[in-house]
Design a protein around this nucleic acid. Structure first.
Length: 664
RNA sequence: GCACCCGUAGCUCAGCUGGAUAGAGUGCUUGACUACGAAUCAAGAGGUCAUAGGUUCGAAUCCUGUCGGGUGCACCA
């Protein structure tokens, strides 16, 4: 039983009372958590609202406090309510009955899957190089949001879009073919050689990509090669495309390995090549023309282009108000393809991909990838797409094209509307100037004067995800070793891995989405203060209490609380009970925090909850000795509260993708 | 020029659809380990919530202007 259930009952009772006894219809009743636990567990500022409404109807001025006095008995009639008090100018503060709350079973949420499917696209790293910390923010945000949605009971499908036919892949292909003069066989041989040397393929491509970028600067003919290469890759069915496919697929494998280290997994990898070859765009184009969503420009500078009118932006001489979807040479822009893809995700396109099994995770979960070939073996193929709602995790710099996609789809399918497509937008990860220098980059005076430096894949400026994870694991290993010199190296490694993941995921989740994360090594590598490690440590500590308790201590505690309700409540009234209720109360707020995270699409809310819960537990922990407590009633309460806290904390951390080690 | 985001403690950030005395972390000063684990805890100092108005019982939060910063606005992806 969570507080959210209580709140819902109280709110509807309030609405009924306002309707029947005061003759006022309250649309939504605001409830809030009082600033201090001494002020109760739930507060309704509704008396102010009612005073205003009653004045409007009757013309008589009403005192909010007097109204609150009338409401209090209604709320007090619930068995889970201990008392109700009127505070200040008319706040109605509700105190839940503590003994009765602790007597209820912890029972975590019911597994009621909500009917419709939600599709979340995240990661979508260009498959031409290793992932950096900016990509990881995307993935961690997306993955955590998926976990939050699932925790709230939604059916979620995870897609990682693979732009395997884009310019960035073409760049690396140009590097292999024209700078290094390698053909497919030689690249495969190189790949084998790299494996032996312990260098991952995506790291090699990272450097190659930078080299190509530099080579373009003083070799015009190479730029022509790029256009040529891009064209061949898009067209498919030639040696260049085959080579590009190998390079892109190997990078996808590497990136998936990186993400696996962070417990991030996918259901489907849709590729751009299939969107092209299975003619998704042509289908969407026809529908858009039929529905009059786009028009062919006959004059002006966009003559010969198909554009989508876009009124919300003012045009100017330099910038157009309309968005071009088909160029005057007849080719489709990225945004055009994206509209077709979005339509597919929502089950509106009337075409489907073909699928090939890509890999299986160690838990047996399959990952599928799209293909244009007819496939025979489709055992276990799930139904992809056809989502009720789609979240695209993409950084804020792509807000404009995302808006075009959303509006475009809504224009063709007004019955689904704009709400079906959500751009889960977040700010970029940039580097602090000192971090950039630490990576060995020379900064201009201009860069150094800025508060941050943007990462650049093209320049090779960025913190590679695997490097950072390695560093975190190494630091964690040293810490574990100093604390537990007796355990095996394998166990130390396993623990330090969990710590590293906890540290990194939390670091990226503690900032709200629209905050630019200015990456700084010291901060990112910290294991103290507001970190994932702090939360993990708290849970480990709580668990270690229960390792020392006997099972019957816990069951006895439950029985004791049921039998001695008066004594339990008396404990909370006395000084002895100080600091116990705040953790218990906070532990009961996981469900509402999840609901809030879903409503605002903001995982940071849950991360903050994990930290606050940990802090509350630590406070409680330092105030009370649980195992040694002599008073049987108090001991029972302490055990029950500690058990609830560690359960809530463990579940919260799991939803953040953070595991709790046995010891650390 | 236009659109979106941001401006809160020395620094980095929270602050939910408006609600009670604006909170954390970090840094600084001090104190607590023969332990249910010090990756912890406690105490102290630190704020004209950029600025000027408006809306109302009530504004860090909503609206408008101003100043300062970021990001977009390709027949690139």
């Amino acid at each position: 039983m969570a507080f959210l259930d209580f709140q819902q009952k109280l709110t509807s009772a309030l609405a009924d009372f306002a309707r029947s006894d005061l003759g006022v219809e309250l649309e939504n009743i605001a409830a809030e958590v009082p600033p201090k636990t001494e002020l109760g567990d739930l507060a309704f500022p509704v008396a102010f609202e009612l005073a205003k409404l009653l004045k409007q109807e009757t013309g008589e001025k009403q005192n909010p406090r007097a109204i609150a006095e009338k409401i209090a008995p209604v709320l007090e009639s619930f068995d889970f309510v201990g008392k109700v008090s009127i505070a200040g100018p008319g706040y109605i503060n509700v105190y839940y009955d503590r003994a009765s709350f602790l007597a209820r079973s912890i029972k975590t949420k019911e597994e009621a899957i909500q009917g419709s499917k939600i599709c979340v696209e995240h990661t979508s790293v260009n498959p031409n190089k290793a992932a950096h910390i900016g990509h990881v923010r995307n993935s961690v945000l997306g993955d955590t949001f998926v976990r939050i949605l699932r925790s709230a009971g939604f059916d979620v499908e995870i897609q990682n879009y693979i732009d395997n036919t884009g310019v960035q892949v073409a760049d690396v292909v140009v590097g292999f073919m024209h700078l290094e003069k390698k053909d497919l066989e030689q690249i495969k041989a190189l790949d084998e050689q790299l494996k032996e040397e312990g260098i991952s393929f995506d790291f090699y491509c990272w450097d190659l990509y930078t080299k190509v970028g530099l080579a373009y600067q003083d070799d015009e003919s190479l730029k022509e090669k790029r256009a040529e290469t891009l064209h061949l890759i898009e067209e498919g069915g030639n040696e260049t495309a085959e080579l590009a496919d190998y390079v892109a697929t190997r990078n996808v494998e590497c990136i998936l390995d990186t993400m696996e280290r962070l417990s991030i997994r996918y259901d489907l990898l849709p590729r751009e090549s299939e969107i092209l070859h299975l003619h998704f765009w042509e289908k969407a184009f026809t529908m858009m023309k039929e529905r009059g969503a786009i028009r062919l420009e006959e004059k002006g500078k966009n003559a010969g282009c198909w554009v989508m009118p876009f009124e919300s932006h003012e045009g100017s001489d330099e910038h157009d108000t309309d968005k071009i979807l088909v160029r005057s040479n007849g080719t489709v822009t990225y945004t055009g393809k994206d509209i077709a893809y979005q339509m597919w995700k929502l089950g509106l396109l009337g075409l489907d991909f073909r699928y090939r099994h890509f890999t299986t995770y160690e838990n047996g979960q399959d990952v599928w990838i799209t293909t244009s070939k007819e496939m025979n073996d489709q055992a276990g193929l799930p139904e992809f797409g056809r989502a009720e709602k789609v979240y695209n995790v993409i950084d804020t710099r792509q807000s404009y094209p995302q808006e075009v996609v959303k509006k475009g789809v809504a224009l063709i399918f007004p019955e689904r509307g704009e709400d079906a497509s959500v751009h889960l937008s977040y700010e970029m990860v940039a580097l602090s100037p000192s971090a950039a220098e630490e990576l060995g980059f020379e900064l201009s005076d201009e860069d150094r004067s800025k508060s941050f430096v943007e990462m650049s894949g093209r320049k090779g400026l960025g913190v590679k995800a695997d490097d950072l994870i390695d560093r975190l694991e190494k630091d964690a290993f040293n810490e574990v070793e100093s604390r537990h010199p007796d355990i095996s190296d394998d166990e130390k490694k396993a623990i330090s891995h969990q710590i590293a993941v906890g540290a990194l995921r939390y670091f990226l989740l503690k900032f709200t989405k629209n905050t630019v994360v200015v990456f700084d090594f010291k901060e990112a590598l910290s294991f103290e203060g507001e970190t994932g490690v702090y939360c993990q440590y708290t849970a480990v500590r709580a668990n270690s209490i229960f390792r020392k308790l006997k099972d019957e201590d816990v069951t006895n505690a439950s029985r004791m609380i049921l039998e001695k309700r008066d004594a339990v409540n008396a404990l909370f009234e006395s000084d002895e009970g100080e600091g116990i209720w705040p953790v218990a109360a906070l532990s009961a707020r996981l469900e509402e925090t999840i609901a809030q995270s879903v409503a605002t699409a903001e995982p940071a809310t849950l991360a903050r909850y994990a930290f606050n819960l940990s802090k509350a537990f630590n406070l409680f922990y330092h105030h009370h000795r649980i195992i040694d407590e002599k008073d049987p009633v108090k001991r029972a309460v302490l055990i029950s509260v500690a058990d609830r806290s560690r359960t809530a904390l463990t579940e919260t951390l799991a939803t953040l993708g953070i595991r709790v080690p046995e010891r650390m």
